[in-house]
Design a protein around this nucleic acid. Structure first.
Lengths: 370, 370
DNA sequence: TATCAAAGTGGAAACGTTTCCAGTCCGGAT
DNA sequence: ATCCGGACTGGAAACGTTTCCACTTTGATA
């Protein structure tokens, strides 16, 4: 395990003290040219490499950043993690990666472990930022951290997309095509504050626009019979002309289920997704969706943490990067969204007691907000 | 940064030596009930937590495993990493994650960094296992490591799918439907030994079956104009009745490009992918593909490393988990593969000077091999 | 020639653990 | 009463660095 030479070994071989060796190899402090030469040769011949563990113990900095996401199976998180990793690596930091499986209990435990491991900073996506116990434990600690995907909470900065604004944009898109009776399809509704925020934002936007209250459609997280669940759900909810899915995978599964019932997309049902994953553009029909930039979230979270570490190093505990109000997003039109069928339009109006009296068509384009 | 109490602090508060505190908190060594009580109370009141860095320096074990994959954007690697992480976490190990971006130079540098960080073991996917410099550096070191996705090489065990067998199965599938003039579509051909092995295996199987030599179709890795590249390529290669794509994403993009030209799938072109990603089943037409189990690779790599660590601990350097010959895979039929059109059949025969004299239809079902 | 600053050097303390070892205390057996 | 072995204890030495500090050397200045 420890076949590597130590400073002491190099010092012995070079015929000097370990302090000198350290100075040479770190390039700091005064050393004579002769010493430098001998040390470098000795280090070379012994194949010396620093022991980062010892360095970390001495310097109190592990050059390691903890990263917690719910899962890597959702490409949104994978993209963010990859960008984060690349960003911090450039500054010499490594990433310790953990997945919580959307479980708040594991979340807290994992954060504890990462602290114990002496990470220099943390980038997190938690189930529910407002109530996260792990995040709370972090609040009083002088440990730089920030959130990804979650809306900012508990004093932590965050790199996220404003789910309410994005959902308002979805409502507009449906409204523009005449869809007023719509549903919101969610997979892990109670384990993801993002999903809940999307629904809340969507509900509010529908209300503002005078659309019917959207129906919340929850499915279990079992993969195998997802198609069956969706088919059954669709049969029961045939009066909906549009469905907003809480992510693109769900949207794609929904489209397939609808087609399996013989429905035509978008004639019989319009679908809008969320995330903007690549395959959405490749499939037929292409998927209308909200395009976000998860890599940007990871990258910016990385920059934030590096800046905080830098400041902590040189200045006081001053935090130079201000928390921001949400990253940009874009509505990407697609073949899965079309105009409402005339018979459904009248149907829905008739069946909508919730319709407010005036249709305030405020044309707010959410993507322009930031 | 170091607001946490140390053993010394606890010892002072409990009125005993640090050795006793260590014994209590580690649950090993003889301690009186009275001491234990006092120590536990002191630790509790001070909110003591172990400093894992110091522990690592002392014990020469970081309880950390290095993980290197080309990218997380390909869900295949994301799945494997997630499974690996879950597996090793259960044994108290953490994962340091790095991405090489398919770059052999970065690969070697990253492996060096991970070694320097004193990881206890390594799980790697390299560009080319046979020639990887990083892997070579590992060979003489007593550092447990194994490969994922790569075929075993340089004495390292590997968890992978036999690309040649899988490709033979693809050849069979095409052959069964009468496709004899086919192509192999690759994105990062020279940076991925998997891709090359798939092509070689496919070429060989085609030869064995008396099909025409498959055409190698390479596209650049630029995302934006991938569609254009594919369209152009398809127009030039209209004589091909089937294309085997080196991964599912490429297959999906290819299908879209073909449709954009007005081609019908599978009537005008049959497509088979590789990996078996989820969306392949959800889209229309569903994608015929080789289904692999990347999570299993990650999981088994994790078990392998844990076993090696266990053995290294208790016994000698004996390695209890034998390298295996490849994980199982499965051919999943899909709507993207159909019978060859009769005119293309004759066309292709006529245009195929490479056809060997006898058609040896050895019906080897690759998926049954393991 | 005497004095001094600067440059170079290495010993030693620290970082927070684990663990060896040499002690102290006890009760029970001689 | 004496001895002995076991249970318990805490001092101290590692682990491999960084860094402070006090000590040489040197060359230049007065």
């Amino acid at each position: 395990m420890k076949s590597t030479a130590t400073l002491k070994d190099v010092a012995r071989q070079a015929g000097c003290g370990i302090a000198t060796v350290s100075r040479v190899l770190n390039g700091k402090g005064p050393v004579s040219a002769a010493s430098r030469q001998r040390v470098l040769e000795a280090a070379q011949s012994l194949g010396f490499e620093f022991n980062e563990t010892a360095r970390a113990l001495q310097s109190q900095r592990t050059r390691t950043i903890g990263c917690l996401v719910p899962s890597l199976i959702n490409p949104v998180f994978a993209d963010a993690v990859q960008a984060l990793q690349a960003e911090v690596l450039a500054a010499g930091y490594h990433l310790i990666l953990m997945c919580s499986d959307y479980d708040p209990a594991q979340e807290a435990e994992i954060i504890r472990m990462l602290i114990q491991k002496n990470v220099d900073a943390l980038a997190l996506t938690v189930s529910d930022a407002a109530t996260s116990a792990g995040l709370m434990a972090l609040r009083d600690r002088p440990l730089p951290h920030c959130l990804m995907f979650n809306a900012p909470a508990q004093g932590a900065a965050s790199y996220f997309v404003n789910n309410a604004s994005a959902s308002a944009r979805v409502a507009q898109a449906f409204d523009d095509e005449g869809h007023h009776r719509t549903g919101f399809l969610a997979l892990r509704f109670h384990r993801s504050d993002r999903s809940r925020q999307r629904f809340e934002g969507y509900k509010k936007a529908c209300r503002t626009r005078g659309m019917a209250e959207p129906l919340l459609l929850e499915v279990d997280q079992d993969q195998p019979d997802l198609g069956k669940q969706l088919s059954q759900m669709l049969r029961q909810r045939a009066q909906l002309s549009g469905i907003y899915a809480s992510n693109d995978y769900l949207a794609i599964a929904l489209i397939r289920a609808a087609r399996a019932l013989g429905w035509k997309i978008p004639q019989d049902l319009s679908v809008i997704g969320f995330d903007g994953i690549e395959v959405g553009q490749l499939m037929v029909p292409s998927l209308a969706t909200i395009v976000t930039d998860p890599a940007a979230m990871g990258r910016q979270a990385g920059r934030h943490l590096l800046a905080a570490l830098e400041n902590q190093q040189h200045l006081g505990a001053e935090n130079s990067v201000p928390p921001i109000g949400g990253l940009g997003f874009e509505f990407r039109p697609g073949e899965s969204l079309g105009p409402v069928r005339s018979d459904m339009r009248s149907n829905s109006r008739a069946a909508t007691p919730l319709l407010p009296l005036h249709h305030s068509k405020t044309a707010l384009n959410a993507s322009q907000e930031q």
